[in-house]
């Protein structure tokens, strides 16, 4: 095995991992605050991709600019889903929550199918064809920018949660919902903010990855599964865990493609999940189980 090839695999995996991290951070935020698993997460991401496609084809907007609009649109969608649907089942048993969220996922996927058809799509960016050489390995400029923006957005989310009053309230509700209620927090509003921000993360992630990853309506499911994998590896509800987990899973998948073949990349990421759960049942940064 050529070491350059392995290095290339690690690097491109790492760069792609930024998007995985952003997507998983959104999922873990929603779970951490509401204890609801957003099974529609991947499908929300696919809608972020299609919105980037629309903005690119209709308005000529580059996805590396359009991600802001996609995040805003998905924030609104997340808010609507929370206020209209999730709010009714926050205290319901898990199986009822799962059924509802799977329903939302199916509706989103099939709406995309109706609107855009089943063919794979890809968004063009001015950066798509540019590459730079870093010593022996080359780097897609698109991947580099995707990674940089995803990391900056994750950092912005961190600052929001740890440095602003609204963010601290979100963390408080995640830490102890009853305690938050006792001190007079409007917990429903916190839930709406958390779901909106979580969806905005995945909307931005979708737009950022749209020039790199071909997608179709059915892509949502595999993205949801990848998000769950990352969040479980990182530890449910842990932001740092989701961030690190995203990079790890992406590198594992990239190496899987190098050592075996691209269609078997998930063999690596799910093996990683099994190995980590064997030794750390609560995930890398999980606190309790």
């Amino acid at each position: 095995m050529d070491p350059t090839l392995v290095l290339q695999g690690v690097l491109s995996g790492l760069l792609f991992g930024g998007v995985y991290s952003l997507m998983a951070v959104g999922l873990t935020l929603i779970f951490g605050v509401m204890r609801v698993v957003n099974f529609a997460h991947g499908d929300m991401m696919v809608w972020g991709m299609y919105l980037a496609l629309l903005l690119s084809t209709r308005a000529g907007l580059d996805p590396y600019l359009a991600f802001v609009a996609c995040a805003a649109a998905l924030f609104a969608l997340g808010l609507a889903v929370q206020r209209g649907l999730v709010d009714r089942i926050v205290d319901a048993p898990h199986e009822m929550q799962i059924l509802l969220m799977l329903g939302v996922a199916l509706v989103l996927e099939n709406l995309a199918l109706v609107a855009f058809g089943p063919e794979p799509a890809r968004v063009r960016s001015a950066l798509s064809t540019a590459t730079v050489w870093l010593g022996p390995v080359f780097v897609d400029v698109a991947r580099l920018v995707t990674f940089a923006v995803a990391v900056v957005l994750t950092l912005a989310l961190y600052l929001f949660l740890f440095r602003t009053d609204v963010g601290r309230t979100v963390r408080a509700a995640a830490d102890n919902t009853y305690g938050a209620l006792v001190i007079g927090t409007d917990v429903r509003r916190v839930y709406a903010v958390a779901f909106g921000v979580g969806a905005a993360c995945v909307g931005a992630a979708g737009a950022l990855v749209s020039p790199i990853l071909p997608f179709q309506p059915a892509t949502g499911l595999s993205l949801s599964v990848a998000s769950f994998n990352i969040v479980i590896i990182g530890g449910m509800g842990s932001l740092l865990g989701a961030f690190i987990g995203g990079l790890l899973v992406s590198v594992a998948e990239s190496l899987g493609a190098v050592f075996l073949k691209p269609s078997l990349k998930e063999l690596f990421s799910f093996s990683l999940l099994i190995v980590i759960l064997l030794f750390r049942p609560a995930g890398l940064f999980g606190k309790r189980l």
Binding site: D175, N176, Y178
Partner: peptide
């Protein structure tokens, strides 16, 4: 409240 109900990780 009873049991204090603080935010333990903050």
């Amino acid at each position: 409240p009873e049991g204090r109900q603080l935010f333990p990780t903050m």
